[in-house]
Computed example of a mutant assay.
Amino acid sequence: MNPAVENTRPSGIMYTPRTPQMRERQRFNLSTRPDDEEIDISGLENLVGQTWNIYAVSALFGLQQDDIHFKLYSKRLREEIANTLSHEDVSYDARFSIMEDMVPKPNHENYPAIKIEVLAKINDTEKEKSLYQGILLSWRITQDEPNIENLIRLPLLLCRGTSTCIDAVHATIIRMFDCLIIALPAKEHDLSWLIPIIIMTNKEEPSVSGEVQMVYTVPELPVTDTVTVKFQTADLRKILSAIMTNQNDEINIFLNREHIEIFFEILHKQMLMVGGLKLGLCTLHRINLPGITIMENKMKIVNVEIMNNVLSYLNEKAFDIFHTVHIDI
């Protein structure tokens, strides 16, 4: 095996992953303009309008971001996929590449995103079929700790493809870069934050309008037996704006945990008064808005600004799960 592809963790570093949701979220910044400078998020245009599976990724060890190493990684991945998904008369191709435009600017020092593709081609034909498309990225996280040699942090992995190929690609990445990859589902706690984050994006010119559907599962019933509650986004935005207004009659750019608690307390009272629904034991499982669906570790978003905020939320969650390190030198 080529030594450029075989990686080990640097000596003297003890890696300590955190358990999911170990730290409860207290606030979220709705502003896309820190320090009065506008962030360029045009690179997200390649992500909108598609359904993505969401994964959290621990630190990648020994990943070199240059053409020579990317060719070696591509060769290794192609060989592993061919061994795992072997079919007669089918050849496979794999590609690693840098996505330079997938870094929010300015004021962020995130590594450029890395795109991973796996293609299949029936021999004697020119037609290629995409089996896997994945993007490793870090989004709007400022890294406070000093850079550690041989280590890169790209906490989020968005991917699409067949389930067998997804499993094979992730298993290969885990071996190549000595990392962990786990599904990053949006639990009820996350959905409770994401609804306000989505509907309050761009308060001056709202990024979404229409009907919000909150889908609840019922204890001891199949996941297909659900209760769906519907609200208009304009009504929810008015409620949130009133909750978030400070003493100077200005709407805060931060959503706080208290805002979320008050918001859902009001909604639950509305559900009880208008629909006679008391959902105390039910679980918020899925949210649907015009052009937006988020459930478990799958999402589809058609708006760049909303994608920006959702990625920021998910990136913080993935970072909190995996990227706390203890250095013992």
Results as ranks from 00 to 15, higher is better:
residue 143 Q to P: 00
residue 147 N to H: 06
residue 282 C to P: 00
residue 214 M to Q: 07
residue 240 L to C: 12
residue 79 E to A: 04
residue 115 K to T: 06
residue 307 M to E: 08
residue 83 N to R: 12
residue 125 T to E: 11
residue 69 H to L: 04
residue 144 D to I: 13
residue 146 P to L: 05
residue 152 I to M: 11
residue 245 T to P: 04
residue 58 S to M: 06
residue 259 H to P: 01
residue 112 P to Y: 03
residue 243 I to L: 07
residue 312 S to L: 11
residue 121 K to C: 03
residue 35 D to K: 07
residue 273 M to A: 09
residue 77 L to G: 07
residue 251 I to W: 04
residue 121 K to R: 13
residue 277 L to V: 03
residue 74 S to Y: 07
residue 64 Q to W: 07
residue 78 R to F: 03
residue 316 E to G: 01
residue 243 I to Y: 05
residue 324 T to S: 12
residue 85 L to A: 10
residue 305 E to A: 12
residue 289 L to S: 06
residue 230 K to L: 06
residue 284 L to R: 01
residue 311 L to P: 08
residue 307 M to S: 11
residue 214 M to T: 11
residue 31 S to K: 05
residue 223 V to R: 09
residue 20 P to R: 07
residue 201 T to E: 06
residue 141 I to E: 09
residue 286 R to S: 09
residue 305 E to R: 13
residue 127 K to A: 07
residue 298 K to P: 05
residue 140 R to Q: 14
residue 288 N to T: 11
residue 160 R to M: 11
residue 6 E to Q: 12
residue 317 K to L: 15
residue 20 P to W: 04
residue 118 V to G: 01
residue 281 L to R: 08
residue 225 D to W: 08
residue 313 Y to H: 05
residue 187 K to C: 10
residue 328 D to M: 06
residue 71 K to E: 08
residue 279 L to N: 03
residue 3 P to C: 03
residue 44 L to A: 01
residue 318 A to Y: 09
residue 154 L to Q: 00
residue 280 G to V: 10
residue 47 L to I: 14
residue 292 I to W: 11
residue 120 A to Y: 02
residue 188 E to T: 11
residue 240 L to T: 09
residue 41 I to Q: 05
residue 301 I to Y: 11
residue 12 G to A: 14
residue 7 N to A: 08
residue 267 L to S: 02
residue 80 E to D: 13
residue 255 L to Y: 11
residue 276 G to I: 12
residue 240 L to R: 01
residue 272 L to K: 06
residue 227 V to Y: 09
residue 37 E to W: 03
residue 269 K to D: 11
residue 58 S to G: 14
residue 81 I to Y: 02
residue 8 T to Q: 09
residue 209 S to C: 01
residue 225 D to K: 10
residue 65 Q to M: 15
